[in-house]
């Protein structure tokens, strides 16, 4: 299929994936391709006319089994700026409660011939299960504690634009790694791109054998931040804290919350990132979060739309056969 004339990328597409389910399994050139295209969409999004036509005539369904405002809005904007028809479905309140299974839902939507399904689900592996049952492209917008690939990609884009490269950077991922899909996706992607990744958290918030994912393990935030180029803070997901992983929020902030004092261990130009939404005074001090010189938190949100446009563009370009012939 010819690349759409309105697509900012003139290069031939060789993105060989039907779905985007995780960053584990993406190659260095896959990631570079997504980031290069994202850079072009960042520029386009800063123009007065933000519209492109690569998704014209295509249908994107945002299928969210978990509440989300940011990610869903970001995908919705991305789809609309590419000229696609976007539908939002929140399933947590409707059919699942009536006993319909995930696969039933997938099959029902599949019969409506969407081109892309963007799926968030509270269970690890649920998006992959759904992807096996549908004919369209599926983007994982977060599954349980497993992966959230577009978040890792937008983080990489933010870093690359600020630092010029990813290779060789020291990146500290700090906080609730056990329950974090953002952490896993970032670990896989950053390792693929040649960064050096550390995780920093109390042992109760680190999964067993996390070092086998190719990370250095620290339990003290100051130690972990020493000589860091990038400080990624994770949200302490209170809704997932069913056991007592940490005794109290104030104790957590005292030892593991990012403030200027602990940040002093990192490089002077270290960039502070957070996937949002932030718990101010829990994992991050308000002052640090709002420091426009150090914090890239709002930039991450901007990059999110561009990265999602790039992912949609690449996946849709890959769909060579029209509906009906593909089955």
């Amino acid at each position: 299929m010819e690349p759409d004339a309105t697509s900012p990328s003139a290069s031939e597409s060789n993105f060989g994936h039907r779905h985007l389910l995780g960053t584990e399994g993406l190659s260095r050139s896959d990631v570079s391709q997504i980031l290069d295209l994202s850079d072009q969409y960042v520029e386009q999004n800063r123009q007065v006319d933000k519209k492109a036509g690569v998704l014209r005539g295509r249908t994107l369904i945002n299928l969210f089994f978990e509440n989300s405002t940011r990610t869903r809005t970001s995908f919705e904007l991305a789809g609309k700026r590419l000229g696609g028809d976007v539908i939002n479905m929140s399933v947590s309140t409707s059919s699942i409660k009536k006993g319909e299974t995930l696969i039933d839902t997938a099959m029902t939507l599949n019969a409506m011939h969407p081109d892309v399904l963007v799926v968030r689900h509270g269970d690890s592996g649920a998006v992959q299960l759904l992807a096996e049952k549908v004919n369209c492209a599926v983007i994982n917008a977060g599954d349980g504690s497993h992966e959230h690939p577009t978040q890792a990609l937008l983080d990489a884009l933010t870093i690359r634009r600020r630092k010029g490269h990813l290779e060789g950077l020291n990146v500290a991922i700090c906080g609730d790694v056990t329950h974090s899909r953002v952490a896993r996706s970032n670990i896989y992607l950053l390792n693929t791109m040649g960064a050096r990744v550390r995780v920093v958290a109390p042992p109760t918030l680190l999964p067993t054998y996390v070092e086998r994912l190719g990370v250095e393990v620290h339990h003290d935030l100051r130690d972990g931040l020493t000589d860091c180029d990038i400080v990624m803070m994770l949200r302490l997901q209170t809704e997932r804290m069913q056991g007592s992983f940490v005794p109290s929020m104030r104790e957590y902030f005292y030892f593991h919350g990012l403030d200027y004092d602990k940040l002093a261990a990192a490089k002077p130009d270290a960039l502070i990132m957070h996937p949002g939404p932030m718990n101010r005074g829990v994992e991050i001090d308000s002052e640090v979060a709002d420091d426009i010189d150090r914090s890239a938190i709002h930039e991450q949100v901007e990059m999110g739309v561009a990265v999602r446009m790039a992912c949609l563009d690449l996946l849709v370009r890959n769909q060579t056969a029209p509906w009906g012939l593909n089955r």
Binding site: S124, P207, T208
Partner: peptide
């Protein structure tokens, strides 16, 4: 173990 950690289970 490692598999559970990778799968987020």
């Amino acid at each position: 173990g490692e598999v559970a950690t990778r799968l987020g289970l």
